[in-house]
Design a protein around this nucleic acid. Structure first.
Lengths: 229, 229
DNA sequence: CGCGGCTTTGATGTTCATCAAGTAAAGTGG
DNA sequence: CCACTTTACTTGATGAACATCAAAGCCGCG
């Protein structure tokens, strides 16, 4: 991790997030912000860390995960640019109950949580905006869990590949930003079976695989598998 | 469903939820509240219904669930007295993406969502309290999903039985408020296997079963199964 | 160059869903 | 209140889906 110096001019967060906040308040926040650069693989937040910053992702891709009872990691969700990394339990507990690690070189911007709370207290519109974002983030996680759970392995893999293709990479040929093991940790299966199933999709000529590079050949078929398996 | 008339004197919600709200505002809300009585099995909220009320559970027990792709129901969570039934997506979308049904005779109290928003906008402390509650509710759901997922059937059943015993019924002999089918829908297994596994626990003399009445004989063993299976 | 982690494939056994069939309980209409 | 229907519960048998174990190739990194 290294620090980054960056002015707040033209920061997308400002328009997206602080629409209802006065310029004065924004300046107050920006003066205290800390921007950090993380290399691929670095840990950004550790389970058990005290929560006193409000962190959002400016660039890159991260995973939120926790340690299961048996020591295996469980991936809760992935987050991309402009997602709030510390949205989940930030207002309900004092310590993180999950970790965050970067999957690609990433830049985070951290604001003082106390400042954010202060503003929310004084500015209801801002607080309502916060609620909306928190709601959306949790809803998405819960929905994804349910969507994954109702599928078999074959359908889960199809679902995940479409997720990375459509939501993260936005291409039909893309580089998987995660390892097979991480896919397994996300959908709750073993690494071996994730690989096996991807190989099946390859043999069925629905995708092409070359290491981390995935090409979706027959997207319609992949969608049908995701729907009905 | 039938309406109930009840004054707001001594309502627990007031102290719990509206700690930072002025008496005037509380009165404004209370004048508009609608209290409804539902019999066991009735549907309180339907997936797709427009969200324009802010509903909380005054008495009883309900399940939040959604329709899976294959038509099977998936239970998201259970909610008891003083839980907010419509916390999940209430501020992020305009229509419910889940249904709510009563598992026991229940009483709900509904407030105008627009009123709640109004108050949140004018009263940041109240809004922060809201955020905290929403965060807690979602966190719990996500955590439970992860806890359930890392267990095998045997451990999942142990986990669920402990959940009902400790969190819902608060007794070691209790009446299951849900059917075997609903347990299956909650943990993502088939009804037959839920029954089978409960029978195994009975044969192993860890629980006694008599219809819906469950008695936990060896709680320590049940906890160990929940931890390590 | 060698070590460790990631990937891949195969063989094997466990766990679980599905199908089937029967019993018990609960609701329904006469 | 009783016959009737429906729903919930239960057990067994079978096969499919999946985890586990094992072994080997690959790749990046110190």
């Amino acid at each position: 991790m290294s620090l980054s110096t960056c002015n707040c001019e033209g920061c997308e967060l400002k328009s997206l997030f602080f629409g209802n906040v006065s310029d004065l308040e924004i300046e107050m926040i920006c003066n205290q912000k800390v921007e950090k650069i993380y290399q691929k693989g670095e840990i950004i937040i550790r389970e058990g860390d005290e929560i006193n910053e409000f962190t959002y992702l400016k660039e890159g891709l991260v995973k939120l995960y926790r340690q299961g009872n048996d020591g295996k990691e469980q991936i809760i969700c992935f987050a991309g640019p402009l997602d709030f990394v510390s949205l989940l339990s930030i207002f309900s507990v004092t310590r993180y109950n999950y970790s965050v690690a970067s999957l690609e070189d990433s830049i985070t911007c951290s604001l003082q949580l106390s400042e954010i709370k202060q503003i929310a207290e004084n500015n209801g519109k801002f607080a309502l905006g916060l609620i909306e974002k928190i709601n959306k983030a949790s809803d998405n996680i819960i929905l994804t869990f349910l969507e994954v759970r109702q599928r078999r392995l074959y359908g889960r893999i199809a679902y995940i590949l479409l997720y990375f293709s459509d939501s993260i990479c936005k291409k039909d040929i893309f580089e998987l930003p995660v390892s097979r093991k991480e896919i397994a940790e996300f959908i709750g299966m073993t690494t071996e079976n994730v690989i096996r199933t991807m190989s099946e999709l390859r043999k069925d000529k629905i995708i092409r695989i070359s290491g981390k590079i995935i090409e979706i050949i027959d997207k319609e078929k992949l969608k049908r598998i995701s729907e009905f398996s």
